[in-house]
Amino acid sequence: MQDLKTLEKIAAGHIGEKGGVIAILQEVQDALGYIPEEAVNWIADRLWIPRSAFFGVATFYAQFYFTPRGKNIITACCGTACHVKGSERLINGIARELNLAGGQDTTPDMEFTLEKVNCVGACSIAPVVIINKKVHGKAGADKIRKELKALRKTDKNAAAVEETDEE
């Protein structure tokens, strides 16, 4: 496994610790972007904690992902204030903009992931959409569409630069 060093470092911080399972999973996800099954197996064996303890926890909490996520993360708030201010229509609009088919949350080119969260607690500026950790308040469909377009553009430029570099 290529991430062995990272995992070794994470495991080393939790040897003999009581109740570290959630923190370990959070660290693995922070380092690798998601939680690969083999990474959990490795750490579980290393720390003498049953693998089932990790998977039981990881499937319980909404924050953990078992599949790789896109380069740009769009977090749409589904809190009550956002709901009454039309977040559902806004989210459906973003999904259409990204051509995400039913149930999909990441675009096939791994550029965008659209995720919903219960409430980010910024209700006075509802509806709220967070794009790559930047909070956008009073988010209209137009505003978000522009942001997504700008991201596509910078990504394409970056890709073009990489290609020329390789040449």
């Binding site: 009581k18 109740g19 570290g20 399972v21 959630i22 923190a23 999973l25 959070q26 303890a53 039981g56 926890v57 319980f60 909490y61 909404a62 924050q63 953990f64 969260v117 219960n118």
Partner: peptide, 26 residues
Amino acid sequence: IKLGAGAFVCGEETALIASIEGRRGM
């Protein structure tokens, strides 16, 4: 500091304790 991991039920005190102990927050 213990970071929650996205489960509403963990606001219930016995579930919160289970979560701090590193278990499913039930």
